[in-house]
Simulated assay, not measured.
Amino acid sequence: MLGVVENHSLPRTAAFFDLDKTVIAKSSTLTFSKSFYQGGLINRRAALRTAYAQFVFLVGGMDHDQMERTREYLSALVRGWNVQQVKEIVAETLHELIDPIIYDEAASLIEEHHTAGRDVVIVSTSGAEVVEPIGELLGADRVVATRMVVGEDGCFTGEVEYYAYGPTKAEAIKELAESEGYDLERCHAYSDSVTDLPMLQAVGHPHAVNPDRALRREALARGWPILDFHRPVRLKQRLPGFAVPPRPALVAVAAIGAAAATAGLVWYANRRRSTVA
C-alpha cells in the first residue's frame, strides 16, 4: 500500500505505467487485430500473423529485435487505414476486449496513486488510437503513445511521427515533468520490459512488474521492487455500478479471434516441428 497523501506545497508527482503486460495481460495493439479483421481492415493472413505475434508476446515477451520487426510490420500494415474507422472499431470493442484483461493489482495501484494525489500517466509503445481510449477507461490523467502520420485523406501513411519506445519514453516523461512540474525523484514508474530501463531509471521509485529475465536481473541488482500481477479482472467486478451495454453483433468477432489465435498456435507448432526436423 502506498498510503501517503501528497503534500501540495511540494512539487507535483506522477506514476508512469507501461501498458502491455504491466496494466493489461496482453498486447493492446495485437488484441484488436480480431476486430480489425472483422471490420475489413486486415485479411485472414494478417490476422493469423498478429495472432502468432500475440502468442510470442504472451509466452516470453519480445526482445528489441522482435519489437523492431513488429513495428515495421505494423507500420506497413496500417498504411491506408482510415483513422476514423480505427477509432470507431476501438471504441465499439474496447470493453469486450480490454476490460477482461486489466490486472486487478494494476487497477488497485492506479487507484492508490490517485488517492495519494499523484497523476497517472500511461506510457505505451502502442498507437495513440488504441492507448488513449484505454487510458480513459483506466482513469489515467495523461497518455504517451506512438503516433502515426495521417495524410490529408484521413488515412495512415505508414510513417511513424513519434515512436514511444526505449529512451524516447524517458525523454517523454522528462518533458512532461518539466511542463507539469513533476518532481521525478518522487515519481513512480512501472514496467515489465528491460527496454523500459531508461524510463525506470528516470524516476525515484521504479518498479519491475512481471519482468522479463533481463529486467528481473537489473531489478535484483539495483534493489528495485519486483511485483507479480496475475489477476485480470473486469472493471464491473471491481465497480458494481459499472455497466456496458450488450453488443450482440460482436459475438462473431470473439469467435473469429479465437479461431485466428488457434490457427496461430498451430502454425507456430508446425514451424517448430519443421525447424527441428
Results as ranks from 00 to 15, higher is better:
E218L: 06
L77H: 03
L227E: 10
A277T: 03
N43D: 15
D20Y: 00
Q84H: 15
F55N: 06
T115D: 04
M62H: 09
A259D: 02
P246K: 11
M67P: 03
A164T: 12
L48P: 00
V90K: 02
L94F: 10
F156T: 00
V121N: 03
K169I: 11
Y268T: 13
D20I: 01
T31H: 01
A107N: 02
V130P: 03
C155S: 14
P133M: 06
A128P: 01
S27F: 05
P167G: 11
W224V: 05
N270Q: 14
T168G: 00
I256T: 12
W224D: 06
I122R: 02
A260H: 07
T125H: 01
A15D: 02
G154I: 11
E88P: 03
N7G: 05
V244P: 02
G204N: 12
E180L: 14
L10R: 12
T31R: 14
A259N: 11
I42D: 09
L215D: 07
H205T: 15
P198F: 10
I101G: 06
V233W: 09
T13N: 08
W267D: 10
L220Y: 11
T146H: 08
V86E: 01
R273G: 05
R49C: 00
K34Q: 12
G257E: 04
D99F: 05
H95E: 12
L48A: 05
L138D: 00
G158K: 07
A219T: 13
R147S: 04
H205N: 15
M67C: 09
E96V: 05
A252R: 14
G151N: 10
A51C: 07
P11V: 11
A107S: 08
K21L: 08
A14S: 14
V266Y: 07
E112H: 09
A107D: 04
D153C: 06
T275R: 15
D63M: 03
L176F: 08
K87G: 01
A202L: 07
P240D: 12
V144G: 07
A164M: 13
A259T: 14
E112P: 00
A116E: 09
V86S: 00
W267M: 13
C155P: 02
F242D: 10
T195Y: 07
Y162D: 09
E96K: 12
